[in-house]
Amino acid sequence: MGTRKMHADEADIDTSLVRALLGAQFPHWAELPIARVESAGTSNAMFRLGEDLVARLPRIAGAVGDVAKEHQWLSRLAPHLPVAIPVPLGKGAPGETYPWHWSVYRWIHGETPTAGRLAEPGLLARDLAEFIAALHQADPADGPPSYRSEALATRDTGTRDAIARVREIVDADAATAAWDAALRAPAWSGPPVWIHADLQPGNLLTVRGRLSAVIDFGCLGLGDPAVDLIAAWYLLPADARGILRAGAQADDASWARGRGWALSIALDELWYYRDTNPVMAGIARYVIDQVLTDHQHAG
């Protein structure tokens, strides 16, 4: 997955580029072994630097703004959260053959969970709820809007377009009915709170089945707390979702919006990545199936 391009405007990034950037900007790290991190991530390329560090370089221009945001906010949020998050150690500048800012972080050990193969789904649901609650309670003063800060209803046209694009592999009528149901939920009327906004398997790390870290805060910002409930459908089996819902204290409207967010995001991911990122497309198909099953049982 690491070398395949997923975007038309994606930069050329390899170990020699990373070595050159380190040599010019962080010579004290330049002699460390460099190894590409195989990942289904779509916005950044990652390279392990020795045992303890990782370089993270935006693949596309649209992800470049995340660098400054993460350097500004992650160290402030980290003390308030119950599990580890990435804290930048170095901010790289554009180089001769790479046009954007980039970051060096400390490497966080852990395993990426896989939906359907969780060792402790109930305990993981509690861990996720604890993280979500803590993040939502962090002081929102001066926080930027999340990448997913819009009201769910503003995604209507894009979501229906996505349904049309994948109708040969997804039950379009069922997806439309589930989306219509989500739109009937009352909109969030409270103040915006800090949200991760992308709590899916690739952005979580576990140790012995328990949540140990949350990574990739590119979507971080202020928004509707329901967006973080997408973890219920991206990762958890049906019998553990209620544990997350209870721990996050999600009311009916928030739960319905969270399910709508999960469906909308997964539909977008399925049509966009179906040919270039089979892991991401597979996760998206799982999410869509979970949402449609939920909706069918609720109806």
Rank of each mutant, 00 (worst) to 15 (best):
T3L: 13
K5C: 11
D9T: 05
E10S: 02
I13Y: 08
V18S: 06
V18N: 04
V18T: 07
R19T: 11
A20C: 09
A20L: 09
A24H: 08
F26Y: 12
P27T: 07
A30I: 08
A30N: 09
L32R: 08
P33G: 06
P33I: 07
I34Y: 02
T42Y: 10
S43L: 14
L49T: 04
E51M: 15
L53E: 09
L53T: 00
L53G: 12
A55H: 06
G62D: 14
A63G: 01
G65C: 02
A68G: 14
K69E: 10
L74C: 07
L81I: 03
V83L: 08
A84D: 14
A84P: 10
L89Q: 11
L89I: 10
G90T: 13
K91N: 15
A93D: 15
W102C: 03
V104M: 09
Y105L: 12
Y105S: 10
W107K: 05
E111Y: 13
T112A: 12
P113E: 09
A115H: 03
R117F: 11
R117Q: 13
G122T: 08
L123N: 13
A133P: 10
P140F: 05
A141Y: 14
G143V: 03
G143I: 06
P144T: 06
R148L: 15
R148Q: 14
L152H: 00
A153E: 15
A153W: 10
T154V: 11
R155N: 13
T157N: 13
R160K: 06
A162D: 03
I163E: 00
I163Y: 03
E168R: 12
E168T: 14
V170F: 04
A172Y: 01
A172D: 06
D173K: 14
A174P: 01
A175Q: 06
A175S: 12
A175H: 05
W179Q: 04
D180A: 13
A181Y: 09
A185S: 12
P186A: 05
A187I: 03
S189T: 12
G190I: 06
P192H: 03
H196R: 08
D198T: 02
R208D: 15
L211Q: 02
A213G: 06
A213R: 05
A213L: 06
L222C: 06
G223W: 02
D224G: 08
D224K: 11
V227S: 05
D228N: 07
L229W: 05
I230Q: 12
L235C: 01
A240R: 05
R241E: 01
R241V: 00
G242L: 08
R245H: 10
R245N: 00
A246P: 10
G247L: 01
D252P: 00
A256D: 10
R259D: 04
A262Y: 01
I265A: 10
L267A: 02
L267G: 01
W271H: 09
W271F: 11
Y272S: 07
Y272F: 13
R274N: 00
R274K: 09
T276W: 00
P278Y: 09
I288N: 00
I288W: 05
D289T: 11
V291R: 01
L292M: 15
L292T: 13
L292W: 03
H295S: 07
Q296A: 13
H297W: 11
